[in-house]
Amino acid sequence: MNKNWSLSQEAFDALLDWLDSDRELAGVKYEQIRSRLIKIFTGRGSIDPEELADETINRVTSKLTEIQNEFTGDRARYFFGVANKVHLEYLRRKTPQPQSALTDAVRAELEFRCLERCIAWLSEEDRDLLLKEYGAKGQTQADRRKALADELGISLNALRIRVYRIRTALKECIEKCIQDSL
């Protein structure tokens, strides 16, 4: 790929068209592919998975004129092939990265304050659920979850998804709170 190649609006539009003729659906597919590529690169131990995911997408986009009439099947699979190549190149040029700096006490205090504030905004039911996740000492996570699911009368998987969503919302709230406080 030409190193000077960059994703123009026109090229990006062409990529979306290739992913789906419905622009809205194409946007969703683009986001899905990007986030999943990030997970794949993360699983391979890449320190900067976002950069590799973007590089993969850029390469696919730059080859669209060649592939859009030839490639058939699930478009996501094509990204996977390109991702493998991008990753190999990454391994050749990989350099050690510095460890992230330890967070200072002031930040820790701020995080805790934001956590308290954000937890207070959760519904009582969600807050109880989250705290019960860590409830009884001496129980494994699986035991706690099973007891909780029984108590709530829902399946274990439904409980896992629910806890995940509460945590994600809480995490976003804390990040926003920290940003606003800085």
Binding site: T42, G45, S46, I47, D48, P49, S100, T103, E111, F112, L115, E116, I119, L130, L131, E133, Y134, G135, R167, L170, K171, I174
Partner: peptide
């Protein structure tokens, strides 16, 4: 050595520790 390699996961671990600390205190 493997899971914590990205900044995003390190951030998630930090959140997990924070939540755990808070939950234990509340219990």
């Amino acid at each position: 050595s493997h899971f914590l390699i990205t900044a995003e996961r390190q951030k998630n671990l930090r959140f997990g520790k924070l939540l755990y600390k808070y939950a234990i205190s509340q219990v």
